[in-house]
Simulated assay, not measured.
Amino acid sequence: MKQQRFSDNINIRNRQASFEYELLDKYVAGMVLMGTEIKSIREGKVNLQDGYCYFNNGEMFVKGINITPYAQGTHYNHDATRERKLLLKRSEIKKLEGKIEEKGLTLIPTRLFINDRGLAKLEIALGKGKKLHDKRDSIRERDAKRELNRIKLK
């Protein structure tokens, strides 16, 4: 059986985001990509850990997402960490821009996936940074869930 190089169901998550931030609202945005970027995404070679979103002249951009250059790409290959424009409705951008001006809120990419039409979408979340004691609570809850699952399996 031949293994496919490009996967049909891409679902890349930023698991660190839910630990570092308290996620309030989630939005799904399209991304403006170059030709070889979608091929690298379909291979699953993406890192969302250091990504963040910002506004510039009424448009939203994401920075810090690392999409590894495509192996078979030529001199037209993309820059791995370039900033990419996000596609949202103008009303959503205005709403998010207003919320970001509040103290302590930020936009974090939480998931990158390919929808049923074959387009790459980025799920972004409005988040508030957790304090150290909140992180300890998250660890405690995660350990309790793990322990309950062990008991149920026995």
Score class of each variant (00 low, 15 high):
D134M: 13
D143V: 12
L88P: 02
R82D: 08
A120M: 02
L105S: 02
E97M: 15
T74N: 15
Y76L: 15
Y52G: 04
G64T: 09
V62K: 07
S91D: 14
G127Y: 01
K128S: 09
R117K: 11
K128G: 02
V46D: 08
L96Q: 07
R84N: 04
L48I: 13
N57H: 12
K135I: 12
I67M: 04
K95N: 14
K63P: 01
R142H: 14
R136W: 12
V62D: 04
K135D: 09
E97A: 13
R136F: 15
H133K: 12
T68D: 10
D137P: 01
H133M: 13
E102H: 09
A71S: 13
A144H: 11
R84V: 04
T74R: 13
K63M: 08
E92V: 09
F113E: 02
Q72P: 01
I114V: 13
I139R: 13
V62W: 05
K95L: 14
Y54S: 06
I65E: 05
L86P: 03
H75S: 15
F61N: 03
D116E: 11
E102D: 13
E59L: 09
P69S: 00
L88K: 08
D137Q: 14
R140A: 14
G127E: 00
G58R: 04
C53R: 01
P109Q: 05
K94V: 05
L88I: 09
I93R: 03
T106K: 08
L86M: 14
G118S: 06
E101F: 09
E101L: 15
Y54A: 04
K99A: 11
P109H: 07
L112C: 03
T68C: 05
L86A: 06
A120Y: 01
Y54K: 07
L96Y: 08
L122R: 00
T68E: 15
G118K: 06
G51Y: 05
F55S: 04
K89E: 14
E141W: 07
R136I: 14
G73T: 05
K121D: 01
K145V: 00
I65N: 08
